[in-house]
């Protein structure tokens, strides 16, 4: 399975990741996300269903994508987030940057 799968339909896009979102993978993903935003996407969803770890480099990349989208009036959601990553996002205050949906749907892990 490819590390990055992109479904793009006019202004909507879903980017599915199949590797831990850490420094090496973030470097590979960065230009792909830039391309998605540059080609007119304003509603972006990043699917982390197959991702078991995100580090600060991955967090930085997600915020950079959100910043780029905000400049064109777009929005971003992170979906399929595991309980541990959801907890990380919460304590790092990322819920102020974008909507975060757990594997079970919107909400925080218990």
């Amino acid at each position: 399975m490819a590390s990055i799968q992109i479904e793009q339909n006019e202004t909507r896009a879903v980017v599915r990741l199949n590797e831990p979102l850490t420094s090496a993978f973030a470097a590979e993903l960065r230009p792909r996300l830039q391309e998605v935003v540059a080609t007119g996407t304003t509603q972006l969803a990043i699917d982390l269903s197959s991702v078991d770890l995100v580090d600060s480099a991955g967090i930085g990349l997600l915020i950079a994508a959100r910043n780029s989208l905000a400049k064109v009036g777009g929005t971003m959601r992170i979906i399929g987030v595991s309980a541990e990553i959801q907890h990380l996002f919460k304590v790092m205050r990322l819920d102020r940057h974008f909507q975060i949906e757990g594997i079970q749907g919107v909400g925080s892990p218990s």
Binding site: D55, S56, I59, G60, L61, I63, A64, N67, L88, M92, R93, R96, H97
Partner: peptide, 12 residues
């Protein structure tokens, strides 16, 4: 800070 794309490692 809000919107910063780096500088979160120490906080982790």
């Amino acid at each position: 800070c809000y919107g910063d794309t780096c500088g979160r490692g120490l906080e982790i």
